[in-house]
Design a protein around this nucleic acid. Structure first.
Length: 434
RNA sequence: GGAACGGUGGCAGAGUGGACGAUUGCACCCGCCUUGAAAGCGGGCGGCCGAAAGGCCCGGGGGUUCGAAUCCCUCCCGUUCCGCCA
């Protein structure tokens, strides 16, 4: 959520910042939010005043009764009853307006970072590093991974579909080992600074609301309706909510977490796109790295997370580039984002394999993750502040798997395992025909 | 799934209709004492909204009452026992 207070104190700045998203609904939403906020504050004052008078009268009634002045007490009780009814009406109105405001706030997107590039769509995302490409690709690399995968018996889409339907895949043999090796590499590479977590992958609605998937993007997530739970689309969801409702000590920030989990996505809006192979699937494994930080720590962490995602891809010797997400393409919760894209010569596509983002306090406000500052001599200060959150994919398995199978394909049709993965491959350094 | 007992401040744990946002202990902070520390002594010490006055928060929601941490209903969560189970 954006900060309502900023909307109150500096509405023009908020309107201007959000205008850069080129989202047609935002202006009207902001105007309505301001109106509701004004009304809410007025009602709050009235309601509190009524309550204060009821409390005062009740105290007086107690005093009179102790002193035995029952008639006087009964007179005040009558007055209090009337006031109480008024208070009830105001409280109900307060409740109504407050939930309207909250609902609206939940769909208003985050303010883009001032340095995020302007643009209206993904076509405007600038390449900020790279592309790091070899001079040419050989003919033997121009084979889509679904062909090579089937040929080598390491990808069995047909049977995955039999079991679970379209857009599910299954890796087998050395292909399954490769998928697992990728997760292990990503975890080991980041274990120097990140605590490994194995979070639940079914979560409550409130958890999915905190990170921004609900209420607006419910169609993208799998729901386990009978138990009112949702399948996580990314480990970002449980990890961001790890400290929900808590106030953490500044001394403990940044908190760095990582998790390897399956991710579930309905891909509701993308039917018919990327239907072959492993480019887009309903279920996949991903290693996520995440930080909870102070606002001051966030910019450096964003760079660090990006460097870690990039470093892993570089270690795997894959051709890649880094793009920055422009204001018109930024996700609802995002403040600033970068993508790592890998080139897959077989299907001749740049594949998004990692997205690294800074959410400012947008998610933390929804999740209620706060921190308490310490002053210069280390004494905890009064009050609390909303934390900042950042995260990125350390490695998303299917597309990296596909890119390896295509880039590493040899003239004889086998696939050479990148050096970085060999420690995890049980001695397999080349995947040949089964 | 069944039964019993619980849910109060960072933690422990009182409070069972009115002076209670809440006794007390521990932890923490400041001061005194001390060469320094510990102990001791004195003081401070929850969160949220609000410019303030004030209001709200004793698991969530609802109810009874002039007034609810306290009584009633309901839901959620926890512990223990039973059942089932990888």
């Amino acid at each position: 959520m954006i900060d309502v207070r900023s909307l109150r104190t500096d509405p023009d700045a908020v309107v201007a910042a959000l205008a850069r998203r080129h989202d047609d609904d935002v202006d009207a939403q902001l105007a309505e939010a301001r109106r509701l906020d004004g009304r809410l504050r007025a009602i709050t004052g009235e309601r509190d005043g009524a309550r204060a008078r009821v409390n005062e009268l009740s105290k007086e009634v107690g005093r009179l009764r102790r002193e035995g002045d029952v008639p006087a007490a009964e007179g005040l009780q009558e007055e209090s009853r009337t006031l109480g009814a008024e208070e009830k009406r105001l409280a109900a109105e307060h409740e109504e307006v407050s939930s309207q405001l909250r609902e609206l706030l939940l769909v208003i997107p985050n303010l883009p970072h001032p340095e995020a590039p302007d643009g209206t769509s993904d076509a405007d995302n600038p390449v900020v590093r790279g592309p790091f490409l070899p001079e040419t690709f050989a003919e033997h690399q121009r084979v889509p991974h679904w062909d090579t995968g089937a040929e080598l018996g390491i990808l069995d889409v047909e049977r995955a579909t039999k079991i679970s339907g379209a857009m599910f895949t299954m890796q087998r043999g050395a292909g399954a080992t490769l998928a697992r090796a990728l997760c292990q590499l990503a975890l080991d590479r980041n274990a120097d600074a990140f605590e490994e977590v194995r979070p639940p992958t079914l979560v409550l609605s409130s958890t999915l609301t905190a990170t921004g998937q609900l209420p607006k993007f419910a169609d993208d997530a799998y729901a386990v309706e009978r138990d009112d739970l949702w399948c996580i689309p990314t480990a970002e969801v449980p990890l961001t909510s790890l400290y929900a409702g808590e106030i953490v000590d500044q001394a403990d920030l940044p908190i760095r977490l990582m998790a390897s989990t399956p991710c579930y996505r309905r891909e509701a809006g993308s039917a018919g796109r990327d239907t072959r192979g492993m480019l887009r699937t309903h279920e996949f494994d991903k290693v996520e790295i995440l930080a909870v930080a102070t606002p001051e720590q966030a910019p450096d962490l964003l760079e660090e997370l990006l460097a870690r995602a990039e470093g892993t891809i570089a270690d795997l010797e894959l051709p890649y580039r880094i793009i920055e997400i422009c204001t018109g393409d930024l996700g609802q919760s995002h403040h600033r984002s970068f993508d790592v894209e890998v080139y897959a010569p077989g299907c001749d596509q740049w594949l998004e394999v990692s997205s690294v983002s800074w959410f400012s306090d947008y998610q933390a406000r929804r999740a209620d993750v706060r921190f308490r500052r310490r002053d210069a001599d280390g004494t905890p200060t009064k009050g609390s502040e909303i934390a900042h959150t950042l995260n990125g994919s350390a490695l998303a398995v299917p597309r990296v798997w596909a890119a390896i199978v295509e880039n590493r394909r040899q003239p004889d049709g086998s696939v050479e395992v990148p050096d970085a993965l060999r420690p995890y491959m049980r001695g397999i350094d080349r995947i040949g025909p089964a």
